[in-house]
Design a protein around this nucleic acid. Structure first.
Lengths: 321, 321
DNA sequence: ACAGGGTTGACAATAATTAGACAATTGTTT
DNA sequence: AAACAATTGTCTAATTATTGTCAACCCTGT
């Protein structure tokens, strides 16, 4: 299999190479002109065509330049050395990203409300395509964490409120849930498994049916570099414990949204703590988590009221061990 | 199943091929004229008619062109190479040796059962990435309708059975549902709205909680060229009626999976018929739909036991106006 | 008459090419 | 500190090939 892939002398057009490497066509040609980074053959019409190896090389060069190296310095480095360079830089990469997002958030706050408003309008019209587009656009504009904190969470609150007031029809709520769920599910699915990273399980305890909050948390944890196992809503504590064990998870994150006073939930949480190994942390978020403060303290769970706290908690949990 | 054999012999008109491949009729003819991409036979009136294989080939070519390849470059590539090309089009990973990611499914001996089996194995391991990959790979190999009929439906049946027997843990069932839901939701979301096409609403009536069947149906209807509004599970009849009206739907498709004898559901169905305009068709599928035969006949609903019937029903509904 | 399909040639949008220019960094010299 | 030079990604313009779409017109069965 390995050999076959190497032997495959498929030719790739400029466009394909551009898509797969993430480099612009201009940049690729500039690198060729100025440094002979890759020297593709030409077809009868003088168009470049690249090999699989060319694409790999260019991808490595791109990653290295993204990591801060100048192209001229690394253009003659071997592939293996490049890989090492990149992986040694990668540790620093994550915190930098987050800082960028934070600073962006402060710059313009009003535009987030715009997204929420357009979403609610499109929901009124039952235009699911528009709903999807709004989320995709918001992600492009503000990044995943930005969208989660400033669009999705407010959106959920608004929908929940309208729902309780009876301003929102069930069908609208269903459509919104489906679109958001699909959006987040897709994001989560596109997250690669990172080999050495710690595992975390995200779910919702028994009789807690709201899965969207948990999904947002799952996506957040994934973007923080954890390997996430997401198990949807309404999972009994024995099941949670079993899954934690099977996946060798370092932490469990639960989302609790409604209701505020479920005695069964209190029992479930106690049971969960008993059936988990001591070194497994429990983190609890969601709008109703405040109401269970007493039990949560009792079982030593970390309560988080926003996504930022989830990120910092995960970060310290990761380094602190 | 005998559906498969039925489909194999079937001849498809230009229109159907256009809808199912997502290519315009113009483009299909241009590819034939300029590159002999597919060479359909003609009937006595010189009209092209295509086979299932033609559709698969055209779908693969479409995926490859969507991935950035020019049609002229890939038009003479074999189906197997195309599949490989498409599945390797994901952005290059950092660790280049990603051949070992997961046991790649053997393309030679792969039957549908194989996919189901791999899925159940990966589910046992709680390896959600593998689950996703299996579905994606299956779709590349057999197209959406093939996967729906021959992988997803059997999968649901097997999961349901294991579930009733208690062979399957809740957490496994949740994971499977989430992966399948995300997969189908993504497919549905990527379906473009076709301007002139009729609208259909897909959902599940009150107290019917299984949404996956409805999602499969939604995707099927979309691939049949309908504009689909999907509203998830458990929607009361007034809500269904309201949404049908707002979206100007020509038909409603309901999925009924469990339980088999819900008196409330009978009432709900009657109420739905009353609150819908007469020219709106009701189509009902799902494993438990048989149990409600009497009511369904009473309200003039079309009962469908498999996806093939759904497609034909939609087709005739569309042309028959 | 009309809808669906077919043929043909034309057209517009993409994609790719080269050569050169520009603006923002970065580093070095004065 | 200011000036200068190298670095580097992006952009423009002119040109060519590829490729999807369309208009115009014909054919056939209902």
């Amino acid at each position: 299999m390995n050999n076959r892939e190497l032997n495959m002398d498929k030719k790739y057009s400029m466009k394909v190479v551009s898509i797969r490497t993430g480099l612009s066509a201009h940049a690729i040609r500039a690198w060729e002109r100025r440094y002979n980074a890759v020297l593709p053959k030409r077809d009868s019409n003088n168009r470049r065509y690249y090999t699989e190896e060319d694409i790999i090389r260019l991808s490595l060069l791109k990653k290295a330049t993204d990591a801060g190296f100048g192209i001229s310095q690394i253009v003659s480095t071997s592939n293996d050395d490049l890989k090492e360079l990149i992986s040694s830089m990668k540790v620093i990469e994550l915190p930098i990203k987050r800082d960028n997002v934070e600073s962006r958030i402060n710059s313009n706050e009003t535009s987030f409300e715009n997204y929420v408003e357009s979403f609610m309008n499109a929901l009124e019209q039952m235009d699911s395509k528009a709903l999807e587009n709004i989320l995709v656009q918001a992600e492009i504009d503000y990044g995943l964490n930005g969208v989660s904190e400033n669009v999705l969470v407010p959106l959920m609150e608004e929908i929940g409120e309208d729902w309780r007031k009876g301003n929102l029809r069930i069908s609208h709520e269903h459509m919104a849930s489906h679109v958001i769920r699909t959006f987040l599910g897709g994001v989560l699915a596109n997250n690669k498994n990172i080999p050495g990273a710690p595992n975390v399980l995200v779910t919702t305890p028994a009789d807690q049916w709201h899965d969207i909050g948990a999904l947002i948390i799952a996506v957040t944890a994934a973007s923080e570099g954890w390997n996430v196992t997401y198990l949807g809503a309404n999972l009994p504590s024995e099941e949670i414990a079993g899954a934690v064990k099977q996946n060798n998870c370092k932490a469990v994150i639960l989302s609790i949204v409604y209701p505020e006073d479920d005695p069964v939930l209190v029992q479930e949480l106690r049971k969960l703590r008993r059936s988990l190994a001591d070194n497994v942390s429990i983190i609890v978020g969601g709008r109703a988590s405040v109401s269970y403060k007493k039990v949560l303290d009792e079982i030593g769970a970390t309560r988080v009221d926003n996504l930022y706290k989830i990120r910092t908690t995960l970060e310290s949990l990761r380094s602190g061990n």
